[in-house]
Design a protein around this nucleic acid. Sequence first.
DNA 1: CCTACCGATCGGTAGG
DNA 2: CCTACCGATCGGTAGG
Lengths: 204, 204
Amino acid sequence: MNIYLWYMATPRRQRASKKELILRKAASMFREKGFAATSMRDLAETIGIEAASLYNHIRSKNEILEAICFGVANRFNAHLDTIEAASGTPISKLETLLRFHIGQMVDHYEEVFVADREWKHLEEPYLSNFHTQRRTYRKRFAGIIEEGIRHNQIKQIDAPTAVLIILHAVSGIESWHRSSAKVSAQQLEDNMVLILIDGLRKHG
Amino acid sequence: MNIYLWYMATPRRQRASKKELILRKAASMFREKGFAATSMRDLAETIGIEAASLYNHIRSKNEILEAICFGVANRFNAHLDTIEAASGTPISKLETLLRFHIGQMVDHYEEVFVADREWKHLEEPYLSNFHTQRRTYRKRFAGIIEEGIRHNQIKQIDAPTAVLIILHAVSGIESWHRSSAKVSAQQLEDNMVLILIDGLRKHG
DNA sequence: CCTACCGATCGGTAGG
DNA sequence: CCTACCGATCGGTAGG
């Protein structure tokens, strides 16, 4: 009866959504326990299937990490393209960028967190690829700050250091996000903009 | 000839330093690969002994993590005690605290990084204990900021958010520390103080 | 400090 | 989608 060929009869739409479910649950578990400490059996149990069945949807544990990391990287790169192409002062670009980072952290923080903290578990050639994209992104980010310094809008500081401060400050949102939320997302964003952008700004 | 009782004849001084060597190498590997992805065989090989021999110096893999995490926590708590007991304005206390964090990150960044990022792999009751210490530390940190707000030295911002920004900004130093160091530790410290403290300060 | 080894668990495959 | 299973590797122990 060929019941072992069930997958050939399974509609593509269903399989795609099952893969998305796997990626979503995996991101949640990788964030919580770390990539290395999450077993495929843990993940399968969360989803409600046997570990072996995962491999009908994904090729390997590492492929899951790749999908998460490059999905996030693509979104950030695309947004930076937009920012660079748009008009506006360096300070306003920086504020837009900062608010985008915060928004991504609030809306997709499981994936963003994993891409930020667990990417070192990628295998070659993905590891090198991701590492390069990361460096490039930070250089472009620093470029905007340097433009602001040239335009006398931003203090004479080391731009790469400022980028690290901003990026890591934003990555701290997860702790907040998980704790009892006394501050709304909007208030958080405004607080961060107030502290970070104002810290960069050159005061009369 | 009782050669299997070698350890009874081993001077305490030597054994202590071997344990310290294990802790130091472990911190380095936990930082680089993560706690879960570092095996006791990896660690033993780095040190130049067999995995089984590690257990003459430490009780378990988790005990190593405990030693690292609580060693770091004790230093930060002790420093905060000093800060709180000292005289000075909230802003100057904050600057001292920030410079201490940066100094710890530069001088002991392997241990500090591990305590910050890998502590979730602690087991009970250490996990709860560490988690509580962490929350308490942040509350005391926020208390100093709140004092600055009351004294009209610091902007009307959400103090816990400001703490997260500062702590995570500092934790970003490792990326910088490992990359080609174009900026000296002193310059880094000054840049961070300039951006973060100035971002908090209430301007005329 | 080592050799020899344990049971548990890992990511992944074969086959239906 | 499952059962049954693989070789590799894990943290850790026994014993000398």
